[in-house]
Write a protein that binds this DNA or RNA. Sequence first.
RNA 1: GGUCCCUUCGUCUAGGGGCCUAGGACGGCGGGUUCUCAGCCCGUUAACAGGGGUUCGAAUCCCCUAGGGACUGCCA
Length: 459
Amino acid sequence: MAKSKNNTSPEVYKMSENIRVRFAPSPTGALHIGGAHTALFNWLCARHTGGTFILRIEDTDRERSTPEYEQSIMDGMRWMGLDWDEGPDKPGQFGPYRQSERMESYTKYANQLLDAGLAYKDNGAVLFKVPSGKIVTFDDEVYGHIEVLSDNASVNQDGTIKDIVIIKRDGMPTYNFAVVIDDFTMNINMVIRGEDHIINTPKQLLIYHALGFKPPKFAHLPMILGKDKKKLSKRQGATSVFEYNDLGYLPDGVFNFLALLGWSPKNGQEVFTREEAVKLFEIGSVTKKPAVLDMDKLNHINQEQMKIMDPYKLLEIIKPFWRGLGLNITACSDDYLASSLQTMGGRGQTTMQLAEYSDYFISFDAVKERYKADDINEERRPALKKFYSELLGTSEFTPEAMESFTRSWIETNESSMKEVALPLRWVLTGRKVSPGVFEVAAQLGKEECCRRLEYYNLI
RNA sequence: GGUCCCUUCGUCUAGGGGCCUAGGACGGCGGGUUCUCAGCCCGUUAACAGGGGUUCGAAUCCCCUAGGGACUGCCA
């Protein structure tokens, strides 16, 4: 139970050396939630320390890597708001940023090992000779001190030492070799990646030592598990981050939620903007325990993020959902739509719900489809008609004015708020639930309220 | 099998020897506010995997056991 936390905090870099971290996905699939988590923590670390965030594409698997996936990973990162300072599309002094384009350095260092007698050729591949009897150690920023005997770093089934392939028969470097060369030549001084790589670290360290490279610091992140506590599989939400968008989650919601997996700010804050996250983030307070994805919590965080989001920004995100529901929003102004969203008052946990719950602000047809007015008691109709007519006559068509008018009316007419407000809600929204009915009425405007009441013969 | 890692409420976590009869959040349950719902407010539910040490004192340190995970590819 290695509990010793490393004492070197990233803040140290602030004063001495610019921190350089990287996210290095292989373009063999879209950006899934685990990748997004790793990317996020790298990004947070870089932004918190004022360091540099590098995107490197690990496309040495020629079979499975595609430019489409590379594009989709970058789109996914942009969606989350994770911008990088150097990458395939953002050349810097340490490029290129695709492994397939850095072949010279792999052959150069492979040859160096070959010349030094630390590697050998076999069957067209180049193998690194794993030394025996060396103790490999490193102090992980998250997991603490880790120590492995070199004999155990890479073994065959029978327990004998297995040399590490560094250049494949097709001439491409293997993962364990390419990361070392790239992280060194790109000046990466902090490697933040998933815990599944912790076991690869000794192998890589052996190569660092053989080449005489100074190793970076390592910070491994806890895995993210599904509800069944198993590693996230393809069918469990490990799918593209865009699916979260389609499901109704805000980039800020996913960002906030993911930041809380394996980390929590010292001040206990749970809902925060990305600026606040950058300020609060510390790699040293990352947890070791694998975290289970909890959709209830995501829903809650997402709802909170919708509440603090700029109304017009939120509007642009909601628009596609309205269109998806078949609503024609072209007739409505952005001001009207944004203010309708405000009227919703934080109701709904996802953008999809918000869009659906607010449809009556855009279309009366949606209301007509839902509400047939067959619950209206004919004996009461005249009284309702009288009241609604007077209500619409209120000179000031504000929620406050309407409410106070209603309160005094029900008093003198021996009615109740329920009796008049509930039917009005149905007529205006076609729903049983909505924001305060006077807020809704005010937002719809007198004219539209009139139209809806007329349709149902209630005015 | 081997190597490495992990283990606090259902879930995310706080906790680094006495502040812990273990705190917060989400969820659940109950109540309040109210034109409905959401919200908000109040209350409640529920955990230190087990066993040995060390210590005046352990969720916190050590050891063992159990469980879980990762890796064991010329994938990354």
